[in-house]
Amino acid sequence: MYNLLMKELKLGVNPFFYIMPFLTGALMLIPSWLYFLVLLYFCFLTIPNMFAGYKTQNDLIFTSMLPVTKKDIVKAKVSVIVILELMHILIAMIYGMISVRLYPNLIYLFFKPSFGFWGLCFVMIAIFNLIFISMYYKTAYKYGAATVVSITATILFAGCAEWLGIQNSFVSNLFKGAGTEHLTTHLFILIAGIMIFAIFTIIAYRIAIKRFEKVEI
C-alpha cells in the first residue's frame, strides 16, 4: 500500500497539482467573495485533469500488472484524493485567516471564512467524494459522468447553503454576523464537518472496492 501511494504521488499526480492549492487558496484574499468556489476549483480542475492523466497514461493496466491487490489500488487512489483535498482546505484556511485580518470591517454578502464555514466545506467535499469515487470505480476509467454529477451535487450544496445564509437570519448571523465570534459553535460545526467528510469518504471507498472488483481491465 505504501509503495502504491508513493507510485501515485510520484507518477500519477503531476507536480502542478501540488502547487494548485497555493494558487486557488490565494483567491481567499478577494474581499467578500463566494469562498466555496475556492475549494470547488479542486473539483473543477484538479480532479478531471488528474483522472484524464490516468486514462491517457494507461495507469489502470500499469497498476494492475504490479503485484498488488485491487483493494490497495483503490485505497491508494482514494488516499491521494484525500491528501490533495486536505492540502486545498488547510492552505485555503491559512489564506482565510490572513483575509479576515486584512479586511476587518468588511460586510460579507457570502459566508465569512470562519471555522464553521470550513466545516461546511468539509461537508461539500464529502458529498463530492461520495459521488465521484463511487461512480468512477464502476469503470475505473470514465471520469466524465462522475465529475459532472459530483460537481452538480457540490454546487447545489454550496448554493443552498449560501441561499439559506441570505434567506434565514439565524444562518446569516452565524456565518456572516456576530455569530462568527461563537468559537465553540463554530468548532463544533468544523468537527461535525470533518466527521461527515471521514464517514462519506470511507463509504465511497467501500463502494469503490466492491465495484472495482468487478471491473474487467
Binding site: 509503495n3 508513493m6 507510485k7 510520484k10 507518477l11 504490479l66 503485484p67
Partner: peptide, 11 residues
Amino acid sequence: KTLTNVIKKFY
C-alpha cells in the same frame, strides 16, 4: 529512471 524507481519497490 523515474519509472524503474517506482516499479522496483514492488518486487
